[in-house]
Design a protein around this nucleic acid. Sequence first.
DNA 1: AATGAATGAGCCTTCATTCAT
DNA 2: TATGAATGAAGGCTCATTCAT
Lengths: 223, 223, 223, 223
Amino acid sequence: MSPAETTTTPPAAVPPAASARGRIDKRRAILAAATKVFAREGYAQASVDMIAAEAGVAKPTIYNHLGGKENLFRAVMEEAARDSSEKVQAALRSFPADPGDLRADLVAVAMRLVDCMIGEDAWALQRLLYAEAGHFPGLYESVLVTGADRTADALAGRLARLANAGHLEIADPVRAAAHFQALIGSEIPSLTALGSRPIDASTLERAVAAGVDTFLRAFRPSR
Amino acid sequence: MSPAETTTTPPAAVPPAASARGRIDKRRAILAAATKVFAREGYAQASVDMIAAEAGVAKPTIYNHLGGKENLFRAVMEEAARDSSEKVQAALRSFPADPGDLRADLVAVAMRLVDCMIGEDAWALQRLLYAEAGHFPGLYESVLVTGADRTADALAGRLARLANAGHLEIADPVRAAAHFQALIGSEIPSLTALGSRPIDASTLERAVAAGVDTFLRAFRPSR
Amino acid sequence: MSPAETTTTPPAAVPPAASARGRIDKRRAILAAATKVFAREGYAQASVDMIAAEAGVAKPTIYNHLGGKENLFRAVMEEAARDSSEKVQAALRSFPADPGDLRADLVAVAMRLVDCMIGEDAWALQRLLYAEAGHFPGLYESVLVTGADRTADALAGRLARLANAGHLEIADPVRAAAHFQALIGSEIPSLTALGSRPIDASTLERAVAAGVDTFLRAFRPSR
Amino acid sequence: MSPAETTTTPPAAVPPAASARGRIDKRRAILAAATKVFAREGYAQASVDMIAAEAGVAKPTIYNHLGGKENLFRAVMEEAARDSSEKVQAALRSFPADPGDLRADLVAVAMRLVDCMIGEDAWALQRLLYAEAGHFPGLYESVLVTGADRTADALAGRLARLANAGHLEIADPVRAAAHFQALIGSEIPSLTALGSRPIDASTLERAVAAGVDTFLRAFRPSR
DNA sequence: AATGAATGAGCCTTCATTCAT
DNA sequence: TATGAATGAAGGCTCATTCAT
């Protein structure tokens, strides 16, 4: 073996790699398959058989790795929340600190946020969360913490900066953030039929821009 | 038998009338039971057995009246949408045409609206809709038509009236209605943990009032 | 159909009778099949599938009638204990009150008792009891009460009568009954290989007679 | 590797011996664990997983050493039969050749025998034998040969000696041995509820003594 | 020699649905 | 009309067993 070859993946022959990575790959394959199947079918309707078939593993392998349907579901939800949150955070990083054209910049970041919310994955997360929050104690909280809370915090921080710089007039940044999100997303459910229908891009952009406009009319400095 | 004799049990002496009423009563009992069970368990997890037990009827009776689980679910959803919509319409009827204190009046009607949205029934409807919209073609639309659309229309109309009377400055009443709803409800999901937690009344009122305030800052006439 | 034909079963046409009796018949068929399968396979190895197939019913029917494997097993054991006990009681009714030839009479009744103990059913009951007494709390007691206890009581009573009549000399009839049973059955396990082998009749009779002889040598009046 | 490198792991310096011992130790551990688990759960209910966990080895190790569940069970039964038989033989070695007080000596040896029969191990052996004799061809015979047969032989020999010495009057020593065993053990099943209940020592002793008394009344020389 | 990982088969149970009454 | 009874089809989970290391 060459000394600096790989630090994360054992190289060598294919079989050992297949075995060492294989374990992780199988776990990943199971989680991916479960995400897909749960998203499509819902928790109760999804069967471990489907997931195993989709993942290309035998059923007991799922139990070995993740111990039962409920656990598997929680793992899927946590992963989905993490992934979704990361996308949102990335979108928020494009938030203007010192905007050139405030409206245009806000619309741009709003579009990025909304893009995060209308993806298949995000809708699936939301649907499953709505559907199962009552059956899985703590599920909502755990998803909230890794997801919406961090989003709200980050967004509030960005808005506060804009306010400090005199671009906005904001008394309560956390609430303003909530209102911002509510306004730019206010038409998403009806436009996408709760994620069950594709959406027209320009219609979406108009709706988002309208939300930003209302936000600006409410929070732009009076003079 | 005296007319008021039995309210719960159909008297045996009046078979035709009793049958006619009994039939309707049974249907009602089934729908009520199904609503309760679907709300608690979700569609897939709910079993026809549970519903039959809850309704106090035999299982085939459900099939006679409503023909299968899927149909039963659709019936439940339509009824729930109708009920919910009626409550909302009632709440909107208290909307001020010529307000004394605009903010106070808007907060009052907003609270009535929000009260409609945080009831057990409304949450159940929303959860089931989110969860099953993808599995029941047309479900979202049918609920939308009897529910949210009418709400939006009515609300838009009321806002337009206020605008015409010079109390608000609104270019697109439909959008303004959407924004109003979004703002006053923006904190409901997090405050109620998607309906799985009771909510503190004063906290809720503050959040609603904040939504109204933002709305007013955006839509109050500039001078 | 003759008027007094059935008091327990509705007579009428064949279908209603088939239905009314059908229910009981199915329950009986299930119990009979379960008895057979449990006897052959043991509790854990037996599957509800096998029992359903053997009974000629669908699997859920078993759950409707007897609610699960464990309950089914208890029902089977209780029935087997009842049946077995009745056979033993019948055998004991031939016990001589005033014997002509005491030895011959005792051997005769001993053979009848032993016949009860070497039947397939009795062995199955015993095997299952030995195997599962530890897993089913109260199982041993419930079987004991309907089975061995009644046997011991009845046998003790018969022996006491013989003693009172001067044919035997017995201080403690209950113990004497236990000793009688132990002696006449002492070679059954080895002769039948715990019920897994048929047994030669004359060999058995010799062993039983030997047990009776030892009993008589111990309990015949000294003079 | 430096010599003192590992303290918890068998030292690397003595591989062959350590291996040889380790191998035997593993086999012993597996057999001990299997004995425990089979005794507790029964054959079918016991899982190889449980046994592996109890033994502290990986599952395939069991297959390497003993080749499958069935073989493992046979090995366990043979070992148990051997152990049990040895205990019984030891107990019989205390049999009086020329007794001082015949009754007292017989009661003493009977108690030793009975102690062998009420131990956890002996009950487990008996339960498993009853339960599985029908499923494992030859199992009963193999256990019999190493167990009950040797016991009967030895006991018959001891009784014959006593008879020769004039202390007993025995025509067929083998049968007398069987009767002795039957009498002293006649109350064990009911007193211990088939091994599932601890037993009161003095009650047991009375029952055993009663068995001996009956035996003596039957086999003591008439004059 | 010992093990982590994987699997095909099977089990107990429950479900939505339909007859026959 | 309403029901007790029955069933084919799945579902979640576990087991004994075997590779590849």
